[in-house]
Each structure stands twice: as structure tokens, then as C-alpha cells.
């Protein structure tokens, strides 16, 4: 910024409000801590200093009311599935879901014989990005989050949709 600093009178950016809105949303998707199993360890590693999620604008929140993104990290049991649905419904719009790891995506190692495991969190809530891996490394999760940011950036929330 050094070259541009203190060189202008009034600075104005001209853009459509729609674009600014989606840009603002995409750069600060606060995520809802949802560690259910070992994927939560990688989620913690992603949030910690080496990978540092806050540099892409993501801050962990402990309440669904304050969160934009729910990262479902781990095995979803039948007992938990009902609670996931409830917590998803408690989040304010716009809301997004990331399915992290094999278990949340398809049931993982329990997909055939696990009587108590939900075979994919997409059965109860709509998923935006699937991150494969068992568990995914922090790099994979960050890739997934950047994909989600791209998706939010390309949304036009105020524009009338073609019928």
C-alpha cells in the first residue's frame, strides 16, 4: 500500500452492492465448532498457529447463532443426527455446511455394518463442500474452505433469479 498511501482526496469504489455483499460474506465465514471424532483433531490443527485459519477470515464460534459455516468433522451417529439437524436449523441465514472426512461424507469405515452411523451427513442437512480424507490433512480442509469461499463469492444474493 506504500505507493498509494496519502495520494488521493476522497476515495470511492464503484461496484454493485450484490458483489460487495458476497465478497464480504466470503471473506469472513465464521465456523461452528463441530468436532465429533478424530477429524476434530485435524480441525484443531487447522485452527492452530501453523495453519492458522483466521488468516482467511475464519473464527471458531461455539454457538450456532453466531456461525455461518458448520464444519461437520467426524462420525455422525444416529443419536447425533437429530441434534445436527436441530443445530443447523438454529443457524442464521446464509448458512453453509462442510462435510469433513469420510465418515461425515458417506459413513466411512462404518458405511456397511455400522448400525448406529448415519451414512453421510447429506441425508439430514444440505452439504456445500465435501472434503475427502480419513482424516483430511489441514491442507485439504483449507482447500475445501477456499472452494466454499469461491462459491460464496460467486453468489448474487440480491439479484432476482430467473424463473
Amino acid at each position: 500500500m506504500g505507493l498509494l498511501e496519502e495520494k488521493f482526496e476522497d476515495n470511492i469504489i464503484v461496484a454493485s452492492f450484490d458483489k460487495i455483499l458476497s465478497w464480504a460474506r466470503s471473506t469472513s465465514p465464521w465456523f461452528f465448532q463441530f468436532g465429533l471424532a478424530c477429524c476434530a483433531i485435524e480441525l484443531m490443527a487447522t485452527g492452530a498457529s501453523r495453519h492458522d485459519l483466521s488468516r482467511i477470515g475464519m473464527i471458531p464460534r461455539s454457538s450456532p447463532r453466531q456461525a455461518d459455516v458448520m464444519i461437520v468433522a467426524g462420525t455422525v451417529t444416529m443419536k447425533m443426527a437429530l441434534r445436527i439437524k436441530k443445530l443447523y436449523e438454529q443457524m442464521a441465514d446464509p448458512k453453509y455446511v462442510i462435510s469433513m472426512g469420510s465418515c461425515a461424507t458417506s459413513g466411512g469405515p462404518y458405511w456397511q455394518y455400522g448400525y448406529h452411523v448415519l451414512k453421510g451427513v447429506d441425508i439430514v442437512v444440505p452439504v456445500d463442500v465435501y472434503v475427502p480424507g480419513c482424516p483430511p490433512r489441514p491442507e485439504s480442509l483449507i482447500e475445501g474452505l477456499i472452494k466454499l469461499q469461491e462459491k460464496i463469492l460467486n453468489e448474487r444474493p440480491l439479484t432476482k433469479k430467473a424463473a
Binding site: 444416529m78 448406529h116 451414512k119
Partner: peptide, 22 residues
């Protein structure tokens, strides 16, 4: 009772299909 030898998984749980669907 899941760990009994004659256990059969229920079909649905609160409207969610329990056995493999994929």
C-alpha cells in the same frame, strides 16, 4: 439390543433410513 447374535437393525430412526442406502 445391538450386540445380541439375533439382532436385526431397525429400518428407520425418526425418518432416517438406518441400513446402507448407497
Amino acid at each position: 439390543w445391538p450386540l445380541r447374535k439375533d439382532y436385526e437393525t431397525q429400518e428407520t430412526f425418526h425418518g432416517i433410513v438406518v441400513p446402507k442406502v448407497k
